[in-house]
Simulated scan of single mutants.
Amino acid sequence: MRVVAQQGDTIDALCHRHLGATAGLVEQVLALNYGISLHGPVLPMGTFVELPDLPAPSTGAAERPLIQLWD
C-alpha cells in the first residue's frame, strides 16, 4: 500500500493510522523504502511511503476456556 505523508508525519504514525499497529512494522517500512531514514524522524510533506501488507489473521487460533470466579 502506498501512502503520502502529511505535515508532521512519522513512519510510526503512518503505520498506526493505516495499519493499526507499529510493532515490527516500522522496520519493514524502513526495509521497503530505501533511504527514507535520510529525511529524519519527521517526513517531509508529500513523501510517498510504501507500507507492507498485513498478514491475514489466523483462523486456527486456540481459544482459551472462560474462567469464572464464582461457579
Rank of each mutant, 00 (worst) to 15 (best):
Leu66Asp: 13
Leu38Pro: 00
Val26Leu: 04
Ser58Arg: 10
Leu66Gln: 09
Val4Met: 07
Ala31Tyr: 11
Tyr34Cys: 14
Leu14Asn: 04
Asp53Tyr: 05
Glu50Met: 09
Ala23Thr: 13
Glu27His: 09
Ile67Ser: 10
Leu38Cys: 07
Gly8Ser: 10
Gln28Trp: 00
Ala31His: 15
Ala56Gln: 15
Leu14Gln: 10
Val29Trp: 03
Ala13Trp: 00
Gly46Ala: 03
Leu54Glu: 06
Leu69Lys: 07
Glu63Ile: 09
Val42Gln: 11
Ala5Val: 04
Glu27Ala: 13
Leu38Arg: 12
Thr10His: 00
Ala13Pro: 00
Val49Asn: 04
Gln28Glu: 11
Thr22Pro: 00
Arg17Tyr: 09
Asp71Lys: 11
Trp70Met: 10
Glu50Asn: 10
Glu50Arg: 13
Leu30His: 14
Thr59Pro: 00
Pro57Trp: 09
Pro44Glu: 14
Leu25Arg: 03
Ala62Arg: 08
Leu30Glu: 15
Arg2Trp: 06
Met45Lys: 09
Leu51Pro: 01
Val3Gly: 00
Tyr34Asn: 13
Leu14Phe: 05
Met1Arg: 07
Pro57Asp: 10
Met1Thr: 14
Thr59Arg: 02
His16Ala: 07
Leu32Cys: 04
Pro57Ile: 11
Gln68Lys: 07
Val49Glu: 07
Leu69Cys: 04
Ser58Trp: 03
Leu19Ala: 05
Leu19Val: 05
Leu66Ile: 12
Pro57His: 07
Gln6Met: 15
Ala31Asn: 13
Met45Gly: 01
Ile67Asn: 10
Thr22Ser: 01
His18Met: 11
Tyr34Arg: 15
Leu69Asn: 05
Gln68Val: 14
His16Gln: 09
Val42Trp: 05
Val26Tyr: 02
Ala31Asp: 12
Ile36Arg: 00
Met1Asp: 08
Leu43Thr: 07
Val4Asn: 01
Ala56Asn: 09
Val4Ala: 03
Ala62Cys: 08
Thr59Gln: 10
Thr10Ile: 02
Arg17Ser: 12
Thr10Tyr: 01
Gly8Gln: 10
Gly40Arg: 06
Ile11Arg: 00
Pro44Trp: 08
Gln7Thr: 15
Glu63Asn: 12
Leu54Arg: 08
Asp53Gln: 09
Leu69Val: 11
Val29Asp: 03
Gly46Phe: 02
Gly60Glu: 12
Gln7Gly: 12
Leu30Phe: 07
Glu27Cys: 04
Asn33Thr: 03
Leu69Trp: 11
Ala23Met: 12
Gly40Asp: 07
Ala61Thr: 11
Ala13Cys: 01
Ala13Ile: 06
Ser58Asp: 15
Val42Ser: 13
Gln68Arg: 07
Gln7Glu: 15
Thr47Met: 02
Pro52Ser: 04
Val26Met: 03
Phe48Lys: 15
